[in-house]
Design a protein around this nucleic acid. Structure first.
Lengths: 222, 222
DNA sequence: CAAATAGTGTCTTTGAGACATTATTAA
DNA sequence: TTAATAATGTCTCAAAGACACTATTTG
């Protein structure tokens, strides 16, 4: 029946490594392109996955070992030209995780590559990564999205570096702090500071519990 | 083979009727839900559609008779619960068209319903419409998107009403005109005005040719 | 001329960025 | 004390909204 299609999931798992926005790649174990690095992906299992979000979580867990604090659908890539096996549908997802968590999982076959230094990937995976980068650039301008890259505890200077890596530009310190204050998603961990050299230590913050799995938006961007 | 799925397209075709953001519905000709109004949709044809965008255009032409000036992917709705036939994938698209063009096509079985007065639709089509409304609300704040609802020629007061219908709020006239000027997508039709009562007639504008099929974005919203 | 909406000038307020100052630490 | 970064106060400039005024039409 021609209406039945190959349906897969691909996940763009982004993280910050050495102040660079980077993407997790998994060595492919199956044909086609066996042995090459590509986005973590796999088939939807209609018997066990309730929906594609479920499938994306399962695939991420299996291929990267992490349960990301942020996961949303990116968009669907499809057509007759993107897969040598023929007409295919890939529902692409977009996930964020702290780099330490990802390295801690230490999954075999996994690598992390800065998005600006990405080589040619199989299928249309370069297009998918590009769409994810556009999405994070866009949302970083007016939301708390990059906070999910920061891990459990972080200082404002570190968070600003993360925002800057996401946006690909430096930010005004005063404006950045005003915006974080306006967003209202952070809370001070009273009394806890982080020393980082011969100078005043920085206050440590965390995401308020109610925003751990939600985004907060600004009326006006950064 | 369990990885082969039912794959369909659904299109949210939006228009403005009586200053209200409205959605085109088509009477269903096939099971399930035969005879009920639902989003125009159909199967992807792997033999003839190069990709899902192609399929969306074909389906729109067949079910509504129009070739919309704006069409983009919305997102994919999927899972075991949304279709009585079982696990399914619907790649949803989002289209804009001028109401006159749509009525001119006069396609049988087609109706137009304000999104705020929408009754219960089959499948998860209410969710899909809601996602489309969120998308247009969002993009109307900082882009030329609503211009594609305005038809060939229009005055600035009419365009402002269209933006207001999209956003669901009234706008400041001076700010709106400054933003339209800043966008730079409009051109005056020299000498052409439109009278509309016992008062000064309004200048007629059109979209510049280079923006007929493109969006222009603002740094800051309206 | 009166009434109505189109279109524009300008003032006020808000908010973003620049710059400067204070705070706190290690050497 | 010095050097370095954290944190904050404040000034300047740009842009959004409010308001008022002019323009042009019909009755």
């Amino acid at each position: 029946m021609s209406e039945r299609m190959i349906a897969t999931i691909d996940v763009v798992l982004l993280t910050i490594q050495q102040q660079q926005l980077s993407v997790a790649l998994a060595r492919r174990e199956h044909e086609p392109f066996t042995g090459l690095d590509a986005l973590p992906g796999g088939y939807i299992h209609a018997e066990t996955d309730r929906d594609s979000l479920d499938a994306a979580l399962r695939i991420l867990r299996r291929k990267t070992g992490v349960n990301p604090p942020y996961l949303e659908q990116l968009r669907t890539f499809d057509g007759c030209a993107r897969d040598p096996r023929g007409w295919s549908i890939s529902i692409a997802y977009f996930a964020l995780v702290n780099a330490e968590l990802l390295l801690q999982a230490g999954h075999p076959g996994l690598s992390i590559c800065p998005v600006d230094a990405l080589r040619r990937l199989p299928f249309d995976h370069n297009d998918i990564v590009q769409a994810a980068v556009e999405r994070i650039r866009n949302k970083s301008q007016y939301s708390s999205l990059p906070c999910h890259l920061a891990g459990e505890r972080f200082t404002l200077p570190k968070l600003q570096k993360i925002y800057e890596a996401c946006l690909g530009e430096t930010l005004n310190k005063v404006s950045f702090r005003r915006k974080m204050d306006e967003l209202g998603v952070l809370e001070e961990i009273a009394g806890q500071t982080e020393a980082n050299g011969a100078h005043r230590p920085a206050q440590v913050y965390r995401l308020k519990a109610e925003f751990a799995n939600a985004l907060k938006l600004l009326q006006r961007g950064l």
